[in-house]
């Protein structure tokens, strides 16, 4: 359960992020703003997160340091799901599946990372079945672990909402280790994710 103070913190963070997001909206190109208006169901922000030093279990059953999985040099697009979730998760996973096929020919192989927020139920076997159902390729991995690990990762990315039933539709992406994370919260179309990804990669090269 989220403690009251933590809740306060979360609210604070959320407000700060929303404000930040508005600032980005105002400062971004007119085309961007128009696109946002068309699908105004999500919030966009940029943040730095410290990846926790924890061991996770990949859907192939391997135990690995989470930080290594994220910092292998590839760009990362990440989401949080659970296999028994019937409404939101199939949709965000469906978005990932579309993103996967749209970025298939991309020279830089993006690492798609799906983290279970119901880790005790989502065993590596169950996650592999789930991955297969949505056509996950070799660059799309699912991760589970202990309840504590899953919560710690969610907290590190400001994605913890106290219970899996409170989870939000969230996509995070990062161009390379050490770069900031781009955060898309809400219902995002595969095209938007791909556009955001290409913009992020371009900016990373320019800088």
């Amino acid at each position: 359960m989220v403690h009251c103070n933590q809740m306060h913190d979360l609210m604070g963070k959320w407000i700060a992020q929303t404000l930040f997001c508005c600032a980005i909206l105002v400062s971004s190109t007119p085309l961007m703003a128009e696109e946002m208006n068309k699908v105004a169901e999500f919030n966009r922000s940029v943040a730095n997160y410290e990846v926790p030093k924890l061991t996770v279990v990949r859907n192939d059953g391997q135990k690995l340091p989470f930080i290594k999985e994220l910092d292998d040099g590839r760009p990362v697009i990440m989401n949080f799901i659970f296999a028994s979730c019937s409404a939101i998760c199939p949709m965000i996973t469906h978005v990932f599946a579309k993103v996967q096929s749209k970025l298939e020919t991309d020279s830089q192989k993006v690492h798609l990372v799906s983290i279970s927020i119901d880790p005790e139920n989502d065993t590596p076997t169950k996650l592999s079945e789930y991955a297969k159902k949505f056509g996950a390729g070799p660059n799309w991995n699912y991760y589970t672990g202990t309840v504590e690990t899953s919560i710690a990762i969610q907290k590190a990315f400001n994605a913890y909402r106290g219970d899996k039933m409170n989870h939000a539709s969230l996509i995070l992406m990062r161009a390379a280790p050490g770069k900031p994370w781009l955060r898309l919260e809400g219902f995002v179309s595969p095209d938007t994710v791909v556009n955001e990804y290409h913009n992020m990669m371009q900016q990373a090269v320019v800088k």
Binding site: V39, S86, A87, P90, M91, H94, V95, V188, S189, P190
Partner: peptide, 18 residues
Amino acid sequence: NRANSGQIEGAAAACETC
């Protein structure tokens, strides 16, 4: 058909899912 994420079909598209 979902505006944001495209086509779904069969059991995944059944009303009961949600």
